[in-house]
Amino acid sequence: MPKQTALTPVMTADEINDYLNVVYPQLNDQYSDYVAIDVKPGECTVRLNANERHLRPGDTVSGPCLFTLADIGGYACVLSHIGREALAVTTNLNINFMRKATAGPVDGHCRILKLGKTLMVFDIDIVADGATVAHATGTYAIPPRKQIA
């Protein structure tokens, strides 16, 4: 699928991480589990630094942790392309789990499929140890811009 290269990021990965620490501090608490690591036109990469806190029996990264990574990927993508808008919210997220992910870095490669005035549609390929462990698609609602009188 072609990349959406006509899109221009307005925030860097570091700026997204700083912003998330302010508007969503409970995401990581005192840890750095979920982080944005790269932003490009129409896409971003997020990482789950998975450790024993994220594992279910069988030394497998839990589904809820991978789902959170997918959701944070969408949030990072929308923020990186529309700016600081804390109230952009998930309206849909569908995930397919394909294989086991173990502790260590789990990367989510997120791509904007469509960015409109009120919705952003994205997909995310979640990769661990060089293999896709899950794939998700989702939609974020973008609140209307406030009018300045």
Results as ranks from 00 to 15, higher is better:
1 M>N: 12
6 A>C: 07
7 L>S: 08
9 P>D: 09
10 V>R: 10
11 M>N: 02
11 M>K: 03
12 T>I: 08
14 D>N: 12
15 E>R: 12
16 I>P: 00
17 N>E: 07
19 Y>Q: 02
22 V>Q: 15
22 V>S: 12
25 P>N: 12
26 Q>T: 13
26 Q>L: 14
27 L>W: 06
28 N>P: 09
30 Q>A: 10
31 Y>N: 13
31 Y>R: 13
32 S>M: 10
34 Y>H: 03
35 V>W: 00
35 V>K: 04
37 I>D: 04
40 K>Y: 07
40 K>R: 14
43 E>I: 00
44 C>T: 10
45 T>Q: 07
46 V>A: 07
47 R>L: 01
48 L>R: 01
50 A>M: 04
50 A>I: 01
51 N>G: 15
52 E>C: 07
52 E>A: 14
54 H>F: 06
56 R>G: 15
56 R>S: 14
57 P>R: 10
58 G>K: 12
59 D>N: 14
59 D>A: 13
60 T>L: 10
61 V>S: 04
61 V>R: 00
61 V>A: 07
62 S>T: 08
63 G>Q: 13
64 P>V: 08
65 C>F: 10
65 C>I: 05
67 F>C: 09
67 F>I: 11
67 F>V: 07
68 T>I: 03
68 T>P: 00
68 T>Q: 05
70 A>M: 08
71 D>Q: 03
72 I>R: 00
75 Y>T: 07
76 A>K: 00
77 C>N: 08
77 C>Y: 00
77 C>Q: 02
78 V>I: 11
78 V>R: 00
79 L>Y: 02
79 L>M: 09
83 G>W: 06
85 E>W: 01
86 A>C: 05
87 L>S: 13
87 L>N: 14
87 L>M: 15
88 A>L: 09
88 A>Y: 04
88 A>M: 12
88 A>V: 14
90 T>V: 06
91 T>N: 08
91 T>A: 13
91 T>F: 05
91 T>P: 02
92 N>H: 14
92 N>I: 01
93 L>S: 07
95 I>D: 01
97 F>G: 08
98 M>E: 13
99 R>E: 12
100 K>C: 11
101 A>Y: 01
102 T>R: 01
102 T>F: 01
103 A>N: 03
103 A>L: 06
104 G>P: 05
106 V>R: 02
106 V>Q: 05
106 V>L: 13
107 D>Y: 09
108 G>S: 11
108 G>E: 04
110 C>S: 15
111 R>G: 09
111 R>E: 10
112 I>Y: 03
113 L>M: 13
114 K>H: 15
114 K>R: 14
115 L>N: 10
116 G>Q: 10
117 K>M: 11
118 T>Q: 14
118 T>N: 08
119 L>V: 13
121 V>R: 05
121 V>K: 03
121 V>F: 15
121 V>G: 02
121 V>E: 07
123 D>I: 09
123 D>V: 12
124 I>Y: 02
126 I>F: 09
126 I>Y: 00
127 V>Q: 06
127 V>H: 03
128 A>W: 00
129 D>E: 14
129 D>F: 06
130 G>E: 14
131 A>L: 11
131 A>E: 15
132 T>R: 14
132 T>H: 05
134 A>Q: 04
135 H>A: 08
136 A>R: 03
137 T>H: 11
140 Y>M: 15
141 A>I: 02
142 I>S: 09
143 P>W: 11
147 Q>P: 04
148 I>K: 12
148 I>C: 06
